[in-house]
């Protein structure tokens, strides 16, 4: 029970830190890291849910695995967009409109 609480508290704290960071930070990489921390918070809660004494529920584990893949995909797409914008800016260096 204590273990369960500890996992949940950590998960919720990570989620909260992530939300705070995602809203406050202006830098895209910081925002992305914050979003990934949020994701880890959710996964912690799911892992705590999976454990029932000796029995382990496989469904939350599968959800976490799927969640990780989706998080990788989302992060990669955001990084790609950031780099595209940076490349465009490098080409138009000194352009006042950018």
């Amino acid at each position: 029970m204590t273990q369960d609480l500890l996992y949940n508290a950590t998960g919720i704290a990570l989620f909260g830190i992530g939300v705070f960071g995602a809203i406050v930070a202006a830098h895209i990489i910081r925002k992305l890291i914050a979003l990934n921390i949020m994701g880890i918070g959710v996964f912690m809660v799911l892992l705590a849910t999976a454990r029932h004494g000796e029995i382990t529920d496989p469904v939350p584990h599968a959800m976490v695995l799927t969640g990780i893949v989706v998080a990788v995909a989302g992060t990669a797409l955001c990084l790609w967009l950031t780099l595209r914008i940076r490349l465009l800016d490098d080409v138009n260096e000194g352009d006042p409109q950018r």
């Binding site: 995602a22 895209i28 979003l35 949020m38 797409l77 955001c78 967009l81 914008i85």
Partner: peptide, 10 residues
């Protein structure tokens, strides 16, 4: 698109 992606992930 990037902003949409970040908001969407959130």
């Amino acid at each position: 698109a990037l902003r949409y992606a970040l908001v969407g992930l959130l």
